[in-house]
Design a protein around this nucleic acid. Structure first.
Length: 273
DNA sequence: ATGCCTTATTTCATAAGA
């Protein structure tokens, strides 16, 4: 069984690359993040023609997650119990936003696929350490851990995967010095990952395919992909049952090349259950 | 080696991404 995750940075803009990649890599389950489309607007005809069922959770312009599966798609959860809304402080300069209800964003979708409980997550970015988005990120991760505790107990074969927007160690960024004072590398964020692992989840680290650095994201700007100035922020956290069944795991950096790529590469994990 | 930013929208400018 092949399970993959990919932040596509808009499924609409990435549609030709996505459908091409589905045929090429032929995953049984594909978790998507940053689909950037409403749930009922997901352009899934190409995937369905290849035999995939699709579960989507979408907001529209931002966020958006999905699971594509050709090995069954049951017990779909849009978001998780207790998922906190994003509620920034009122913006005095924008009266239209004052009094707007806080919004639970489309950042998580769960489903049971071929005997594996799968969650596709897009963790909030955090933006900067002094932004309200940063405590939101930490709160979101704490709530995710609480919600998944029961799921991990209930499913031997379990994985939560996607764009965590956290580099687990300094080895997971090209230059730790460039991140001093930034999000994605703080002790608080890394502790949140450690808390998740504390549920009994294992970080399945993929092969890099090149450079011995299994980065999954490279900024579009300044040729950073070509200089291998990247980060490993797309993670695959699996129970022992699933992690112990892994036969191969790799970053498909070829998908980061060529015309119209996402800024993230897919992570592909092969398991023999 | 595979190319020097991209996305959707409040569109010819902006916010967000990480």
């Amino acid at each position: 069984m092949r399970i993959a995750t990919w932040n596509v940075n808009s499924v609409g803009a990435r549609l030709p690359r996505l459908n091409e990649w589905l045929e090429l890599a032929s995953p049984d389950v594909l978790c998507l993040q940053e689909t950037k489309c409403a749930g009922d607007a997901f352009p899934g005809e190409g995937a369905e023609a290849l035999g995939y069922e699709i579960a989507t959770n979408g907001d529209g312009r931002w966020n958006g997650v999905a699971i594509l599966s050709r090995v069954g798609l049951d017990d779909v959860s849009l978001g998780f119990p207790g998922q906190p809304p994003y509620a920034p402080p009122p913006d005095e300069d924008d009266p239209a936003l004052i009094g707007a209800p806080p919004m639970v964003e489309a950042r998580a979708v769960g489903a049971s696929c071929g005997g594996v409980r799968v969650w596709s997550v897009y963790v909030p970015n955090g933006r900067s350490l002094d932004s309200p988005h940063y405590p939101y990120k930490l709160e979101w991760l704490a709530a995710l851990r609480t919600a998944l505790a029961d799921e991990v107990k209930a499913h031997d074969a379990f994985v939560v995967t996607g764009d965590f927007n956290i580099a687990p160690t300094d080895d997971d960024v090209w230059d730790p010095g460039a991140f001093v004072g930034s999000t994605h590398v703080t002790d608080a964020e890394r502790n949140a990952l450690a808390e998740l692992r504390g549920l009994g989840l294992h970080d399945v680290i993929p092969r890099a395919m090149k450079h011995d650095t299994p980065y999954t994201y490279w900024d579009y700007r300044a040729g950073m992909f070509h200089k291998n100035m990247g980060m490993r922020i797309d993670l695959f956290y699996a129970t022992q049952k699933l992690a112990g069944a892994v036969k191969d795991a790799y970053v498909d950096r070829d998908a980061r090349k060529g015309k119209g790529p996402s800024d993230h590469a897919p992570v592909v994990v092969d398991v023999d259950l």
